[in-house]
Design a protein around this nucleic acid. Structure first.
Lengths: 127, 127, 127, 127
DNA sequence: GTGGTCTAGACCACC
DNA sequence: GTGGTCTAGACCACA
């Protein structure tokens, strides 16, 4: 099985809805080709029990990703990464995906009076 | 009027609750010292009519900011920027506050196959 | 002047209304005979300026104390401590006045898991 | 029902706002470990109907307790006692929290001509 | 099912 | 004048 390695993570009390956290993770994994077109995704039930989360929540994430064209439903078998639209992403494109988080951490740092130096240092320390 | 300059703005349908938008604005104004300790804030009713919003919504924002220690209530007179707690915090304390965001952006970068170099570069570019 | 020594104190942002703080102080001073029947009280205006408080607030306190029979209004001259009702209070009576505060600090201590020993020690330290 | 034992009570006309009465009760229950970290709280609607009070009032109490770190929200499931922050505090920290009340009772005692001895005795009697 | 947000309008306490 | 409390009722987001 390919997706035993697939460790989804959710922070249940982070304010961000669980289904959104899941969607973002799948998108990132697809963008970086950790998940390639055609790759199967773990079943709703598996993810649900693994994360101790309501299956409806996983299902919602998958359905929305399908609506966005990131995933495809293989009848009777489950979800897999869609071929169309999921062409390999360039570094620039992947950086673009990350940009909102970059902007947001910079805004936070500035509000906290944390300079560029300190911020990058802290990131290096924790990377 | 003393606070004609204080132009609060809300985007009613941005998904972010109005009271939260207000709180963030006040916090930014305080953090940037556009609002200094002791400065008065416009009255609940004034803001409410100016923004065409229910007074309770403004009141909620003010009350929460008071609970957080950002504002103080002057009985019968209105709200003002608090003196206590708006004192400087140590760099360590502030970095600690930022840490969760640091952890989270690192996790995202790794899922996107973006290395430390690229991440810090991107941050420098956007800072 | 007898009441230059009379230092009223108010904690404007303690949650307790200012007029109530004033009333309680006057009552305690009367109970302990720091203020004896017939003694004059500082004028509304003096107290107001000294405490940087709205004169209406002082006036309200005085009026309520008059309604309770603690003070008397001397026409054209101001307030003085009433004769009736303000007989000297026994130690028991004064302790009774203090009782609510005693109960309340004990409740707080218990919620904070602070024992009798520690509480009394702390009081001795600060007395 | 798991929390049949959780009997909230409110005195509607005690002057103290209902939401505050609720908050204090929850805090006491947490402090005394009748409610332990992770324990669920009755739903807003349940409490509201049980107390014949508007749900928003209960919600306000819960939200403020969340803001204070006493409770946590489990998305879509309800409130539970928070783990973080309900960790033990040092004796010094707890005494510091109590200090304002200590100062205030001492001031009251002095105005009532009640000495240290009598004050501590009275506290011992009522503890 | 859960809590969150907002409205409209009433009433209160304080200054 | 200030903010605070509460109600009744609508609608939304999340699980």
């Amino acid at each position: 099985m390919t997706f035993e390695l697939l460790a989804f993570e959710v922070a249940p009390s982070s304010g961000i809805p669980i289904y959104r956290q899941l969607m973002d993770q799948v998108k990132r994994l697809v963008a970086s080709e950790h998940l390639k077109p055609g790759d199967p995704l773990p079943s709703v039930r598996n993810v649900a029990t693994a994360l101790a989360v309501n299956p409806m929540t996983i299902s919602k994430a998958y359905s929305l990703l399908e609506a966005e064209g990131v995933l495809e439903r293989e009848r009777g078998k489950g979800m897999k990464v869609a071929a169309t639209k999921n062409v390999a992403k360039s570094t620039e494109q992947r950086l673009e995906i990350l940009q909102p988080s970059v902007d947001s951490i910079i805004a936070e740092a500035k509000q906290l009076d944390i300079g560029l130096e300190q911020l990058t240092q802290q990131i290096e320390k924790s990377f």
